[in-house]
Design a protein around this nucleic acid. Structure first.
Lengths: 112, 112
DNA sequence: TTGACTATACAACAATACTTGAAATATAAA
DNA sequence: TTTATATTTCAAGTATTGTTGTATAGTCAA
C-alpha cells in the first residue's frame, strides 16, 4: 500500500454515495450486485451511479465482471484489508500502546 | 462512528497534502508540531497549510492547542482508531474470515 | 433481424475544493 | 509602545469533482 493508492482509496470513500455503494457491496459479498440493483436500491440515476462506480473501480476499491448484459460489482475486500493495515501502521507509528494488540509486531518505516 | 463522521475523515485523508500532514503528526505524537514547523517541513505557503489544517481540525482528525503565538497541532489518534474499527467492521460484515487474524503480522508502509 | 434492456460515454453545466497574496489578529520581544 | 513573528481570514481566481440528459454500444429474447 503506497501513499498514492491510499489517497485514491480515501477519495473513493470520501463521498456519502460511494460509501453507501461500498457498504452495500460488502453486505452482499461475495456475490456482489449488478449495476441496476445498486441504482434502484440507492435511487440514483444510472449515469451518476456509473460515474461513481467507474471511480471506485479505477481505485481498485471494487471489482467488476461482465455477466451478459449486466455488470456485476463486488467489493475488493483484500484491498480494503490492506488499507486497514496501512492505517493501523500509520496510526501506530511511535505509539504502539494506542493501537490494536500490544503483542502484534509492528515495524514501521520512517514516513517522509 | 457514524457515516457522516467517517465520510468527513475520509475526505480529510483524501489529499496527498493532508495525508502528509497527518502522518507527520502521528510521527511526532504525542508532542505534535506547531503550524510553522509543518509548513517548513512540507514547504507549503502558510495560507494553504492553514486551509488544510482547518479542514482536518473541523473533521476532528487533528487537535489544536494554542501555545503563546503558536498553534500546536496533534494527531487525534483515538478518532483514527475509531475509524479503523469502523472500517474493520464494515469490511468484515458477513465475511469475518477475510478480516483480522489475531496473530497477523502488520507489514508496513513503503515511503509514499 | 428487430425491439427491448442494461449500462457506459459524452457533453454541458453546477457545485465544491484548492491555491495564493494581501490584510487582519494576536502574541512576544525589544 | 513599537516592532517583529505566527497564524488565520478574506477575496479572487483556478481547478477539480459531481450531476444530469441524450446518445451510443452491447446483449438478450422473440
Amino acid at each position: 500500500m503506497d501513499k498514492q493508492l491510499a489517497t485514491k482509496l480515501f477519495e473513493s470513500l470520501a463521498s456519502g454515495i460511494r460509501l453507501d455503494i461500498f457498504r452495500m457491496l460488502v453486505k452482499h459479498a461475495p456475490t456482489g450486485l449488478v449495476a441496476g440493483e445498486i441504482a434502484s436500491k440507492l435511487d440514483l440515476p444510472p449515469t451518476n451511479l456509473s460515474f461513481h462506480l467507474k471511480a471506485m473501480t479505477h481505485a481498485s476499491l471494487v471489482i467488476v465482471a461482465q455477466e451478459g448484459r449486466y455488470q456485476r460489482y463486488r467489493a475488493n475486500l483484500s484491498v480494503m484489508q490492506s488499507l486497514i493495515d496501512y492505517l493501523t501502521a500509520e496510526c501506530c507509528t511511535g505509539n504502539p500502546e494506542l493501537c490494536f494488540d500490544a503483542d502484534k509486531a509492528i515495524t514501521c518505516c520512517d514516513t517522509n
